[in-house]
Simulated assay, not measured.
Amino acid sequence: MKTKSFKSSLLLFLAAFIWGVAFVAQSVGMDYVGPFTFNAVRCFVGSFILIPVIFWNQKRTAKKVDKDTLHDRPKESILGGISCGILFFIATSLQQIGILYTSVGKAGFITALYIVIVPILGIFLKRKVNLKIWISVLIALVGLYLLCMSGSLTLTKGDALILLGALFFSFHILVVDYFSSKVSGVKLSCIQLFIASMLSAIPMFVLENPKLSSICAAWAPILYAGILSCGVAYTLQIIGQRNLNPTIASLILSLESVISVLAGWVILHQTLSTRELIGCVLMFAAILLAEL
Rank of each mutant, 00 (worst) to 15 (best):
Thr235Arg: 01
Ile110Asn: 03
Ile99Val: 13
Lys75Glu: 08
Leu174Cys: 09
Ser189Met: 04
Phe89Asp: 01
Phe88Glu: 00
Val28Gln: 09
Leu164Ser: 12
Ala218Tyr: 10
Glu76Trp: 13
Ile215Asn: 05
Ser47Glu: 03
Val261Glu: 00
Gly80Trp: 06
Gly105Cys: 15
Ala249Tyr: 01
Val261Tyr: 01
Lys211Tyr: 08
Ala218Gly: 12
Ile173Lys: 09
Met204Leu: 09
Ile133Cys: 04
Ile238Asp: 02
Val137Cys: 11
Phe6Glu: 02
Asn39Glu: 01
Leu193Gly: 03
Ile123Ser: 13
Leu167Val: 13
Asn130Ile: 10
Phe48Ser: 14
Pro203Ser: 10
Gln96Arg: 04
Leu11Phe: 14
Phe55Gly: 12
Leu251Cys: 11
Leu255Met: 15
Lys187Ile: 11
Ile173Arg: 06
Ile86Val: 15
Phe179Arg: 05
Met198Thr: 13
Ala220Glu: 15
Ser181Trp: 07
Val41Arg: 04
Ser250Leu: 05
Ala218His: 08
Asp31Val: 12
Ile78Lys: 01
Leu141Phe: 15
Ser5Arg: 08
Gly46Ile: 06
Ile117Ser: 02
Trp265His: 11
Val137Pro: 04
Ala15Cys: 08
Ser93Leu: 04
Ser189Cys: 12
Leu188Trp: 04
Ile51Leu: 13
Ala201Leu: 15
Ala112Trp: 00
Leu144Gln: 06
Val137Ile: 14
Glu76Leu: 14
Asn39Leu: 12
Asp72Trp: 14
Pro203Asn: 08
Gly85Arg: 01
Ala233Thr: 04
Ser197Thr: 06
Lys132Glu: 10
Gly122Met: 09
Val104Leu: 12
Phe36Leu: 07
Leu236Glu: 02
Gln58Ile: 13
Ala15Leu: 07
Gln58Trp: 14
Leu10Met: 13
Ile135Lys: 06
Ile278Pro: 01
Ile18His: 10
Glu76Ile: 10
Val45Leu: 14
Lys128Thr: 10
Ile135Asn: 06
Lys126Val: 03
Leu11His: 01
Leu138Lys: 05
Thr156Cys: 11
Lys182Ala: 07
Phe168Ala: 05
Val258Thr: 15
Gly46Arg: 09
Ile195Lys: 08
Gln270Lys: 12
Ser180Asp: 08
Lys2Tyr: 06
Val186Met: 07
Ile259Leu: 05
Gly29Arg: 07
His71Gly: 11
Ser213Thr: 14
Ile239Asn: 05
Gly105Leu: 13
Leu79Tyr: 15
Pro52Tyr: 10
Gln95Leu: 13
Gln192Cys: 11
Ala285Arg: 05
Phe23Glu: 07
Tyr101Met: 03
Phe171Asp: 00
Ile54Cys: 07
Ile162Phe: 05
Ser93Cys: 05
Gly151Ser: 09
Val28Arg: 13
Lys75Asp: 08
Asn57Arg: 12
Ile82Gly: 03
Ile259Gln: 00
Phe38Gly: 00
Ser77Gln: 12
Thr154Asp: 10
Ser170Gln: 06
Val137Glu: 03
Asn57Thr: 09
Phe284Ile: 15
Phe44Ile: 02
Leu212Phe: 15
Ile78Arg: 05
Thr154Asn: 09
Cys84Asn: 06
Gln270Met: 11
Lys106Pro: 03
Ala218Leu: 11
Cys216Met: 15
Gln96Tyr: 02
Val104His: 08
Leu282Lys: 01
Ile54Trp: 09
Ser83Leu: 10
Leu153Ser: 11
Glu208Gly: 08
Arg60Cys: 04
Val65Arg: 13
Ile227Val: 14
Leu11Gly: 00
Gly81Glu: 01
Val28Lys: 11
Gln26Pro: 00
